[in-house]
Design a protein around this nucleic acid. Sequence first.
DNA 1: TGCAATGCCGAAAATTATACGGCATATAGG
DNA 2: CCTATATGCCGTATAATTTTCGGCATTGCA
Lengths: 158, 158
Amino acid sequence: MADLDSVDRQLVDLLQRQGQTSYSDLAKAVGLAVSSVTERVRKLSERGVLLGVHGQAAPEALGLDLLAFVFVSWSDPAVADAFLTRIGAEPAVQEAHHVTGQWNYLLKVRVTTTRMLEAFLTNVIKGVPGIERTETLIVLSSAKETTYLPVVAPAWYG
Amino acid sequence: MADLDSVDRQLVDLLQRQGQTSYSDLAKAVGLAVSSVTERVRKLSERGVLLGVHGQAAPEALGLDLLAFVFVSWSDPAVADAFLTRIGAEPAVQEAHHVTGQWNYLLKVRVTTTRMLEAFLTNVIKGVPGIERTETLIVLSSAKETTYLPVVAPAWYG
DNA sequence: TGCAATGCCGAAAATTATACGGCATATAGG
DNA sequence: CCTATATGCCGTATAATTTTCGGCATTGCA
């Protein structure tokens, strides 16, 4: 299905770093003609390797000064559906992961203030019937935060 | 500093969703001329509201089938520098957050297999002198994962 | 050997980005 | 009150880019 050659990988690498790189620049970088690169990129999208291009905004510039990870748990399996529906419609929730361990889900949440975080926990999370416990970790600073995915294996892994 | 009007917010919204939206489309959407939108977007970048545009790749298409969150802790404060330097150079680490609670850092890590996760913990994390404990949560599935930041306050928060 | 599929190429045409001068409105200082 | 300055918007001309097409070489396969 996947099976990307080195040119494909290079294109994915470049487009992850600079989503608006022109086809002529891409062509120069990989040593192919513009039309060949166009076709490659089109197929990468078609195959689902490239999912889209997104502008990256600064959270603080939008007033989103508070980042938190929220663990959530419940006992009744029927809660999952309602929870995911509610969470899916909530822009404050950037990520929702089903995780191993003592908790059901781990959420990545962005809000403006602790007051807004409180409102989120009260109105959104505990607004879903059946949710029993939560635990919130506040992010003091983010040393690294990227969406870049490596296209080559690291040195420490043969 | 920030102070975005409704047009700015709309532009940030649109560009987050579709980073390659043409200026003519943006102009149509916000009801301004192309040159006005060009200027607006340029200033949003200049002001640091828009940080860049990035292609989004499918982790599984790159063989990155395993997502994990890794908590890390140490006692000696001097460890932080070495840890962050090591982590910063590691593409497998997508995020590194300094968090409240019993752990020092929370990492978001993407690898191909459990075998590679083991190599990461052994060679990278424990390769940093002074690191004492880690705890790893495996992500079974991700119900939501987006980089989109809300540009308007939610209904549950006045 | 012949056939089909694939990837690549260059060029033409359509679309888009960029740069510029001009215009209207708002603001501050005299 | 009035002038000077700044800001935001506009349309247009030019440059650059995207998109599309037919053709060519290579590969795999019957």
